[in-house]
Design a protein around this nucleic acid. Structure first.
Lengths: 374, 374
DNA sequence: CTGAAAGCGCTTACAG
DNA sequence: CTGAAAGCGCTTACAG
């Protein structure tokens, strides 16, 4: 594949005409030496001009820059990285891009947050492509060992993950979006919402509206966010003097489809819930759809509240009351923390909590269940 | 930053103990030389083992592999790329990650298609981060000139883009998802749906249901897909003997919000449309929401049909009739074409059409407008 | 302020 | 089947 250019390079000494005949020649990258020759300086000087070293005279800088301009010079990324030990790129590890999960607008939105901040600092983004936890682990090892990235942001936190322990052992700069589970909180830098508090608040809100039969539809139980939601939900019930009813707690993985199954389960109970805490806006769409098929009116017969405030959540019927978790900020803050880590690997790990906010729309209403008045 | 390791390396000759004291030492990458020494061969032999060259004896391969294993060796990515002129990574150029557009599940889904195929071939993904067309153009130039990627997939096609002309001039391997506009169709490899035909089909379907007042809500006019949709729409009307009514044609950029404005515009007309062709499922959500606020019943008073069949489109009320454009296949096919291009830069450009399919749900109904019977 | 030289960690003709 | 050497295109002490 690169035989051709090789040969050309050797012919190069023979004269300009030979080169001109072969179109591929334009592909032949201009190197620092070419610039050096043209500007009548040494390669090292050109290098210093690139780095804008203040040990180079203004005149020389201008001359070199002109030469770079004229030749259309761009420094070779890999040569720089090799000499530098720096790649100016950060790795992003996403959870399984399983069809459904990845259609959740959460991910585009965090990535937008990450991307914006990374762009400002001149960093590029390298994306994981693995589908399983093992594949992704191998990718992380590769990113680290082959020195492809300077730092990593982990977009999810799960029980028994392989990735975090590995990164910690290597003392490789990374930040987690979410909260560590198996590892001590204070040992890993992470950016998170207070999901416990958010779920507690939401449940309290429902109980303030008079609901006592409040069900909980959680996401994948492997994810820490689900655990936190559940704890907050339980805590709120407890404080309100409502007994926790295990049949009111269901988990489902598959977002909207899951939401639908969960509804069937809950609405088949002797004592139907009058309110629902749903893990995710998308899931809530599935819930709503199912409920509408069953002829259950929201919010008259059932109140619903969910999390994330993803764009479409205001487009449901009725518009969804939800918790805005500021997804964009989660991403951009994570990158900021990552840069701190990259500057000093031994910096104290820190934990940043992005505030959440209740967005009241029209899916919740005062409870009018007769059991209330009994 | 890498001063420390430098010093260590020099002390290295002094003895093992010095090294053991400094934790950073584990970070010090194992190189091909270390492996060579351990396996008692030359570096070049190790290199050949990595490449699994058949000119190396089985016995040597095993010995070298053991050494690699024991030392935890991973070849340095940049050194390889530099020597190789190959990066094993492909660049993905996304349209502006403007808040709304990027929340469209279209992008996660194409990326999933791309990602899956890339993973199979051992390729990584490098993501554009620029917000404006100019920023993204600069990123592309950088990816190409600095030799960061072996190929590029462009996720969108727009009028007066800078990126494609540049890539063509460079003869750099890329494939477009969509269809070129300013450039001749047969000069750029692209993967697309037949958006003209899809829009035509959809409009015909509506007219078969008896609708004659069919409006069109298109997306961003800069994007080629919008133009194709519009042409298909017009063609169908023409063939059905329905006169094109310019006030029935509106464009909006901002997806759902846009969808809502468009509805106001259309429903304020003297002669309200009885059917709507909507550019995108997400936009259709906005349309539906607005209509529901206005008390217009879908599909009784107004039929709606949209494009993409994004996951949530079945969760609207009523469930949306839409055109499945097989987004995943768009992505994975694009990568296949890209690999062909990368293998042979001078391969004939080709155009692949991914079939579409009408998904009938419940947002369309026979027209019962009196104007029909007049 | 600038240059010559060594080095970053690989690959690949070339020679045997 | 294997090795010594040159080269990929940069950066960075070192010396002046």
């Amino acid at each position: 594949m690169n035989e051709r250019p090789k040969i050309l390079r050797e012919d190069n000494t023979a004269g300009e005409t030979v080169l001109a005949e072969v179109e591929e020649v334009i592909q032949l990258a201009v190197t620092i030496k070419d610039v050096a020759k043209k500007a009548n300086v040494a390669a090292s000087t050109v290098s210093r001009v690139i780095a804008n070293s203040n040990r180079i005279s203004h005149a020389t800088k201008i001359r070199v820059r002109e030469a770079m301009e004229e030749l259309g010079y761009h420094p070779n990324f890999h040569a720089r990285s090799l000499a530098n030990k720096s790649t100016k790129t950060i790795g992003i590890i996403m959870p399984s891009s399983a069809k459904v999960a990845f259609q959740n607008p959460f991910f585009p939105e965090v990535i937008r947050g990450i991307s914006t901040k990374a762009y400002q600092k001149g960093y590029g983004l390298y994306l994981s492509t693995g589908q399983t936890e093992e594949e992704r682990f191998e990718e992380v090892v590769q990113m680290v060992e082959e020195q492809r990235v300077d730092g990593i942001v982990l977009l999810y936190s799960r029980k028994n993950g392989l990735i975090m322990p590995y990164l910690m052992k290597k003392n490789f700069p990374f930040v987690l979006i979410g909260r560590p589970y198996d590892l001590p909180d204070e040992e890993v830098t992470h950016v998170n919402n207070d999901n416990f508090k958010a779920a507690k608040m939401v449940t309290e809100y429902l109980s303030l509206l008079g609901h006592r039969q409040i069900a909980f539809i959680g996401g994948n139980m492997e994810y820490v966010v689900t655990i936190d939601h559940m704890k907050g939900y339980k805590k709120a019930l407890e404080q309100a003097g409502i007994e926790v009813n295990d049949s009111y707690i269901v988990y489902h993985d598959e977002l909207e489809e899951g939401g639908q199954e969960a509804v069937i389960e809950l609405m088949s109970l002797q004592e139907r819930p009058t309110a629902l805490v749903v893990a995710d806006d998308l899931m809530a769409f599935g819930v709503l759809r199912m409920l509408s098929d069953m002829g259950v009116n929201v919010p008259d017969e059932l109140s619903i509240i969910s999390f994330n405030n993803v764009m479409i959540s205001e487009l449901s019927s009725p518009p969804m009351t939800t918790v805005d978790i500021h997804i964009f900020d989660l991403g951009s803050t994570a990158v900021e923390c990552l840069f701190d880590k990259m500057l000093d690997k031994h910096i104290q790990p820190k934990s940043v909590i992005i505030p959440h906010r209740l967005i009241k729309r029209q899916s919740c209403k005062k409870c009018n269940d007769k059991t209330l008045h009994s």
